[in-house]
Design a protein around this nucleic acid. Structure first.
Length: 245
DNA sequence: GTGAATGTTAACAG
DNA sequence: CCTGTTAACATTCA
């Protein structure tokens, strides 16, 4: 379910719980739930695919992984991983990773790599990629230390929008093309955010899960590419591979 | 019933 | 120690 934009949407949905006190903490998460009870939520943040629920002396990190779900002001029949009970309200998370971290978020996270953040630093990303010339761009885009919040949909769509072949090594990408990719990736994440909220995300896909290239009408390639063997949809004609042959 | 999917990491082999 | 592979977690849908 989650790439960065979905986590931003989740965070925004939780903003009404800022300054609310957790009366009951439950669920089967392997954390000290009693630590939460009686504590007031100070803030809600996200970094990449991490949702951060901030308290005075610690924060909760939630990662929805592939199948995580949640309910706000409601619950499912199954046992939640984390249940937060408030006065007359509740929030529940399912099938996710939960950690309690005894630090301030500023000590742990740098938002310059978070593609959804106002602090996102394209120049820093460019420098990092330049220093990893043999890494395939399809792997680099999924590297959460470089593009925090980018997932497989954003990877496929951004490469298509930039007309870049997924297997191109970063060191062979012309600087102008690399900068185009950085800009279009950030733009697509915000399109994703808008379309996800509208419920129209899938109908806007131009590459992901598509059979025909919308640009030149030839069939898409569908291959498991890169170190991580994630599915890649791409057009062999429109998307240029700059690697020397 | 089977396989694959918006993800990540621990464990293991070499 | 580094790198690569496999397993594991876990839900839903085609």
């Amino acid at each position: 379910m989650p790439e960065g934009p979905s986590i931003v949407i989740l965070k925004e949905a939780l903003i009404p719980f800022r300054n609310k006190k957790v009366l009951i903490a439950g669920g089967d998460a392997a954390i000290d739930l009693s630590r939460l009870e009686g504590q007031k939520i100070i803030d809600l943040k996200s970094w990449g695919k991490h949702l951060l629920i901030c308290f005075k002396h610690f924060f909760i990190r939630i990662h929805l992984m592939m199948f995580g779900t949640y309910r706000i002001s409601g619950h499912k029949d199954s046992v939640p991983r984390l249940h937060l009970g408030f006065k007359g309200d509740e929030v529940n998370f399912y099938t996710c990773q939960v950690a309690l971290i005894e630090k301030r978020v500023e000590e742990v996270y740098n938002w310059e790599t978070d593609i959804m953040s106002g602090l996102w630093n394209a120049h820093k990303a460019e420098l990092t990629l330049t220093g990893l010339p043999r890494v395939k761009i399809c792997d680099a885009l999924l590297d959460q230390d470089i593009f925090s919040g980018v997932g497989n949909i954003i990877k496929n769509e951004s490469l298509f929008n930039s007309r870049l072949h997924p297997e191109t090594e970063t060191g062979h990408i012309p600087t102008r093309k690399l900068r185009e990719l950085l800009a279009k990736t950030q733009k697509y994440t915000w399109d994703f955010y808008t379309w996800k909220q509208e419920g129209t995300l899938a109908q806007h896909w131009r590459a992901y899960e598509q059979k025909i290239c919308p640009r030149c009408r030839i069939p898409f390639e569908k291959e498991y590419l890169g170190k991580n063997k994630r599915i890649s949809f791409f057009c062999n004609t429109c998307q240029i591979n700059y690697n020397p042959s």
